[in-house]
Design a binder for these strands. Structure first.
Length: 624
RNA sequence: GGGCCCGUAGCUCAGCAUGGACAGAGCGGCGGCCUCCUAAGCCGUAGGGCGUGGGUUCAAGUCCCACCGGGCCCGCCA
């Protein structure tokens, strides 16, 4: 498709138009690509656009064109280019079938390195549906960059210090909670539940509050009993959390414990640099007396809300301070580095490393040209401070991006199911208040629904096959649901709505793929040809080919703008075009030359669809 | 008080970055389509003029300003 645009621009340039703007039309009635240069020139030349367009078109030398056949002038002054479909279709299908898995992914990332942090759920609870949004977004970015040729490292920040961990300590050590959850409940779910219970108790008890402060301080004491016990709990929760992430299709390279940002002295190195550059100051008096603050007075926006405390008067660091150190490390501008031990393996067999003081493994991350941090949009201000700080520290030439996404809230209906009354349309999730819906039960519900559907049509399937396919459908459904909406918009989650399997959903996508698989399986002949059977193809065929041709443009655009939902819409459009083709253009049973071409088209669709879904992380069953 | 995000059909949302050709989907409503490659599908029909008011422009859902409504953030919490 890009070729067509370039060709049109070239033709226009040859008539004397400078920098002609050519874009893909949104309606095929206007040809494949069109230009509105006549409007831009109208003012300069003081002539009506229509006249200018006519003149330009009359000057185009079509003998120099390849795939473009003709240009037409339309109503107010557009120039619409039409193409030789026979050539175009064959070109696209050849491209897809020749490149296979690689089709649609321009190699724009060769030699570039990206670090992505995502998930980063506090290790005191199970993933709720909002955390799943983070994981799916981050994992999709990983998949996209990887396919575009970037080298990518995935980090998961483990906040193992502070408040939320202290609450669990008190629950286990002082309030008599057992370390083993009741039968049927996972450890991460269990911790999430007791965290909410215990938090209320502690907040209303002065003795426990004091104990909590003691625990928080002890947590920074590397090697203490409290420190060790904490690592035990964190590890158990992490195991469960990551099994959920894996189920969602995500993978990780490194787990960075927040406590280790201090333990490995990354913070002290950064603190020294900040002091050297005069970016921080010590408050001698006033309400922040005894604190070290970062000066934000030079920042146009942040300055309006005052400077930020990095080191508290008791000498401990704030979350923002530790995050600045972590960010500087990510950008590769620190001398110091973490050490790791192997923590486990991803389902793909790759190792996951975790920071450890006496770790044996080094994992130099190098200089990232791009550091992407998938963090919800409530943290925009702290993230802006982090970005400001690392840029002042030299930034290493890479760019630090806060990929902000809105939270997931619960619908009124779901909130009421949890026994929460609300006047509004939705209610914010809160781990501390026990207002959340975990993602595992949602996937399980989807899986049950999928099984019911499978049983309706495949009474003869084995249990294993039903398990496998229903799991794929469930995962595809939840991922698509979380990826298709604008990251900047809040999702109001309603389990009833989300468990639908019809319409603009994951199953709709999978279904089109399965239909394609069936055609290829059942076709009596295996020979195919990318040469169209006719000068004029059916509209449905053209629409499908056109959509297939867009893929490289979409992928490159998304990599630049990080607009993930655009991949999701693209997948949906592809599926829609295929379903339309499926209804209107019989493959099996048509005349041999038609069948051979359509088989090639179905093959191409299946390949492209597989490529797109591999980026979205939607697992594809061959039957459903 | 300051900063940020959102406001498009009854409901859920796409389209806004690079303004352009009649404003699109899904769900729900109504009416159709399984002797034919899986109907988790397809087709038709009703339904909005894009929160409001200004402005820029040949052209504004898309850009600018103000206002209204909803949400988030401004802690020696993370």
């Amino acid at each position: 498709m890009k070729k067509v645009i370039l060709e049109a621009q070239q033709l226009l340039r040859e008539t004397g138009v400078e920098n002609p703007r050519v874009e893909v039309t949104k309606d095929p009635r206007y040809g494949e690509v069109s230009s509105s240069v006549a409007f831009e020139l109208a003012k300069k030349l003081k002539k009506p656009p229509l006249e200018i367009a006519e003149e330009i078109v009359s000057r185009i030398d079509f003998s120099r064109a390849n795939v473009i056949t003709v240009a037409e002038v339309a109503k107010p002054g557009y120039i619409n280019f039409k193409i030789n479909w026979k050539l175009f279709a064959q070109d696209i299908l050849d491209d897809v079938l020749k490149n296979g898995r690689a089709y649609g992914f321009p190699n724009i990332g060769a030699g570039k390195h990206v670090l992505i942090e995502h998930t980063s759920v506090n290790p005191n609870k199970a993933l709720h549906i909002g955390h799943a949004r983070n994981t799916c977004l981050g994992d999709t970015l990983y998949r996209l960059f990887k396919r575009l040729g970037y080298s990518v490292v995935i980090a998961n920040y483990i906040d193992d210090s502070g408040n939320q961990m202290a609450d669990l300590h008190i629950a286990f050590k002082k309030l008599g909670y057992s370390l083993s959850p009741p039968k049927g409940e996972r450890f991460d779910e269990y911790c999430g539940r007791i965290y909410a219970e215990v938090n209320k108790i502690i907040e209303n008890n002065a003795d426990l509050l004091q104990e909590k402060r003691r625990v928080i301080a002890e947590l920074e004491n590397v090697g203490s009993e409290t420190f060790k016990f904490n690592r035990e709990i964190v590890d158990l929760v992490l195991k469960d959390q990551l099994s959920t992430c894996w189920r969602l299709g995500a993978r990780y390279d490194i787990l960075n414990r927040e406590s280790d940002v201090l333990a490995f002295n990354l913070w002290s190195e950064v603190f020294e640099s900040l002091k050297e550059r005069g970016l921080v100051y010590y408050a001698e008096e006033g309400p922040k007396k005894g604190c070290w603050l970062i000066s934000l007075s030079e920042h146009p926006v942040l300055s309006k809300e005052g400077d930020e405390v990095l080191v508290k008067s008791d000498g401990t660091t704030t979350y923002v301070a530790r995050d600045i150190a972590y960010a500087a490390w990510k950008l590769g501008i620190l001398r110091r580095d973490f050490k790791y031990n192997r923590w486990g393996k991803n389902p793909d067999g790759s190792y996951i490393l975790i920071t450890e003081m006496d770790g044996k493994v080094s994992f130099p991350i190098g200089k990232a040209s791009l550091v992407v941090n998938v963090i919800d949009s409530r943290q925009k201000r702290p993230q802006a401070i982090v970005k400001y700080a690392v840029e002042k520290l030299g930034g290493g030439g890479g760019s630090y991006i806060h990929f902000a996404y809105e939270v997931v809230s619960l619908s009124k209906r779901d909130a009421e199911k949890l026994g929460i009354s609300t006047g509004g349309r939705f209610v914010q999730m809160s781990g501390r208040e026990g207002i959340y819906i975990n993602v595992e039960p949602v996937i399980n519900l989807l899986k049950e629904r999928a099984k019911e559907e499978i049983l309706k049509r495949h009474r003869d399937w084995s249990r294993e096959k039903i398990e496998d396919v229903s799991e794929k459908i469930a995962v595809a459904t939840i991922r698509y649901e979380l990826l298709k909406s604008d990251a900047e918009k809040m999702i109001i989650f309603d389990s009833e709505e989300a468990s639908k399997l019809e319409g603009d959903t994951g199953p709709y996508l999978l279904y089109s793929y399965v239909r394609a698989a069936r055609i290829l399986e059942k076709a009596s002949i295996k020979e195919f040809t990318t040469t169209p059977y006719n000068e004029e193809l059916e509209e449905a065929e053209k629409n499908l080919i056109r959509k297939i041709a867009y893929m490289p443009l979409i992928m490159e655009e998304v990599a630049n703008l990080l607009l993930i939902k655009r991949i999701a819409s693209y997948a949906n459009e592809l599926a829609k075009m295929f379903n339309d083709f499926y209804e209107k253009c019989p493959v099996i049973g048509s005349k041999e030359n038609i069948m051979q071409f359509r088989l090639a088209l179905v093959k191409a669709f299946k390949q492209v669809f597989e490529n797109v879904c591999s980026v979205l992380g939607l697992p594809l069953p061959e039957e459903m």
